[in-house]
Computed example of a mutant assay.
Amino acid sequence: MEVILNQFDFTTKWNGGILLLVLFLINIYLFLLPKGKEDSIKKTILFISGLVGLFIALGTPVNILGRVTFSFHMIQLVMLLLVVPPLLIVGFKKGILEKIPSIAPVQKGLYWLTNPFISLFLFYGMFYLYHHPPIFDYVKVDYYLNYFYLFALFFAAILLWLPLLSKNALMAKAKQRYCLANIILIIPLFLIYLLSKESLYTVYTDIGMLTAALEYCIPDWDTLPKEFFAELLPFNPLNEQKIGGSILISGHAVVFGGVMIKNFRVKEN
């Protein structure tokens, strides 16, 4: 990985635009949003940690490595969809959240979108669609479309987490079933990656597609020889696919399994 990253300059590996966005959001959270009695230092730390996680997923070398290897693509998604959203939701200022549902159109929209069946269908429908090989290869070679889809998935992940983290959304047993559903729904994709006899995604095996995927990441990419891009494909794509699938299922099991255990302990107490 270090050899690969050494091929890129600093501005390619570290996205200044994402960093500025994160710093902007931190300043708004700390200095512009009103603070309530329940907005503790702990909540502030959680929210800022979520924003830092967002930067790590989208603005650090993790993003570049996700374009080169499938395993890092899954690491990026686990952070962006399973780690960052709950941190932001739990850490967000409660007073602001309480005012949002008072707006009638927003209340109706949130009520519909955060319905457990709708949120599950929306998130996993988008997730499976994104990883359908022709769509995945097409999205990955387009710099802006890839970011757009990632942010769309991130928004769907926020909706996915709201029924779990909102106090009045689901009862304890329903939350347990909801967590279990999240784990079960990802198993078919994991099995596809595990049992597949060949690489599903051309973008990780074809030098031409890899070049197109990295076009906007490298300022002087058109002056580089093909040998440069050939050096970025040292990994067995089929093995990477299995590793990526394992990271995906492990992330779901750890995160949603942890939530299930926490809810169970709260219920016992």
Rank of each mutant, 00 (worst) to 15 (best):
V62Y: 02
G36R: 00
G244M: 09
E98I: 09
F10M: 00
K42Q: 08
G17Y: 11
A230S: 05
S246P: 06
K140M: 13
K267N: 15
Y124D: 15
V141A: 06
P86V: 03
P188D: 11
L153F: 12
L32T: 13
L33W: 11
V83H: 03
I18H: 02
L5V: 11
L162D: 06
Y204H: 09
I45P: 04
T202R: 15
L162A: 14
P134L: 09
F229L: 02
T205W: 08
L200F: 13
W112S: 12
L214S: 04
L32W: 09
G17D: 04
L214G: 02
V68P: 03
Y216P: 00
Y178H: 08
G36Q: 01
S196K: 02
P85E: 05
L80D: 08
E227M: 13
N146P: 00
T60G: 00
I56L: 13
L88H: 01
N63D: 11
L194Q: 11
I247Y: 09
I247G: 10
F136A: 09
E38A: 11
L194A: 13
L80Y: 04
G66V: 15
I28N: 08
I118N: 11
S40R: 09
T11Y: 13
L129Y: 08
G109P: 07
S250W: 07
K93L: 04
K175I: 03
K99I: 14
S166F: 12
K167G: 10
L233I: 08
W221V: 08
Y204C: 10
L20R: 08
L170T: 09
F136P: 05
V139T: 10
E38Q: 13
E227T: 10
F31T: 14
G59S: 06
P219L: 05
K242F: 14
H252A: 12
A156Y: 03
I158P: 07
N115V: 00
L170K: 06
T114K: 01
G244H: 02
I26V: 11
Y216N: 07
L88T: 01
K37D: 07
E268V: 07
H73E: 07
